[in-house]
Design a protein around this nucleic acid. Sequence first.
DNA 1: CGGGCTATACTCGCAGCGGAGTATTCCGCT
DNA 2: AGCGGAATACTCCGCTGCGAGTATAGCCCG
Lengths: 211, 211
Amino acid sequence: MPVRRKVGNLLGLAVLTVLVDRPMHPYEMATVIRARGKDQDMEIKWGSLYRVVQNLERHGFVEAAGSERAGARPERTVYRLTPTGRAELEDWARDLVAVPEPEHPRFEAGLSVLAILDPDEAAGLLRARAALVERRLAAQRAELAHDRGETPRLFLLEREYDLAVGQAELDWTRALLAELLDGTFPDLPLWRSLHPPPSPPHPGGRDGRHR
Amino acid sequence: MPVRRKVGNLLGLAVLTVLVDRPMHPYEMATVIRARGKDQDMEIKWGSLYRVVQNLERHGFVEAAGSERAGARPERTVYRLTPTGRAELEDWARDLVAVPEPEHPRFEAGLSVLAILDPDEAAGLLRARAALVERRLAAQRAELAHDRGETPRLFLLEREYDLAVGQAELDWTRALLAELLDGTFPDLPLWRSLHPPPSPPHPGGRDGRHR
DNA sequence: CGGGCTATACTCGCAGCGGAGTATTCCGCT
DNA sequence: AGCGGAATACTCCGCTGCGAGTATAGCCCG
């Protein structure tokens, strides 16, 4: 497995990263992370921000660098990256890049239980998904093309990657869908046998229960 | 977003699925899920099993169908799927299949902070990753080919999908790596400027700090 | 026939996550 | 000048997840 991190939340990675440039107070970190669009790259829940910063401090990755107050309002603690924190950031990054870990997208879980749905319904759902994915890809592609003008490619790599993987997903889905629609999919009879039509006119109570 | 589930843990999905066939006690569910290989499809932590079953019961998705004891040993509660539970299972499956959700693989997070590493090191890490991914793909492909003999394709869809996406990831990584190695990657100068060599012979203390 | 190993079948406790809430200030509008 | 809504800047608490631990039963090996 990938090294067990003292602070595992990826929000922590984002925090360490923005602190490389300069010390900040938590709310500002949130703003900067959002501004750089890095909140799109990892599921970030802002409710966890202060908790995560606390944990980073507890483990010596960041430390308070004093506190300021602006006008009224509770004083905000400004945090700075420690050398240990910088090291942790690099180590974490290395780990994320070099060690592939089996991940488990929702779609995979969905496919693993696809057989409990009626095959015709499943085809409809796959078609719907494909349409949505296609639209999202188009939007992402447009946005990426736009940002290329303003941001060096070096900082857009994760978006390129996303696009590549998304496209592969779409292609695979479309291929499966085609097999289902033109009847080439080999297990269709088996699959249908698991889902007897609601009530055939009404012959002698046949009931093809599976198992 | 995808409907908020009362029980969100995917282990719950697996539990509902095995209960379609027949009532079971928790430990048996674990055995069956493992036997069907469905534990490969979702990150399952067995420490959560009893908790998840409890929660499913609390929400009326499963219910105790009595308890048995075998020889000595604490009596095991046998659970059965309720109609609500069956409905939840189908709804959940539909949701997982039809609604694509932006996911956030570890590698994406890694790429988003790649610039903090030295470009040469980054190339090394990408190469290492590519090698590992390639080996895993080969292993998966072999295993899948083997299982094709014993299991209908209908129950192996998620593995096919995994393979397709894994291959896309590998291709993308290799392409990026090639650009880095042959110097085609456009931001290499920028990137290098963020990482001044540890200590150049020792001229007048130049220090190209970024920002 | 006894000693250790593996499989069976759970329980416990706590850290961490995150949804929801809170309080204040600022700004635009009318 | 008064109101409403958005942005700022957090806090709180309950539930979940899960690593670690526990205890017995069966069984294989010498």
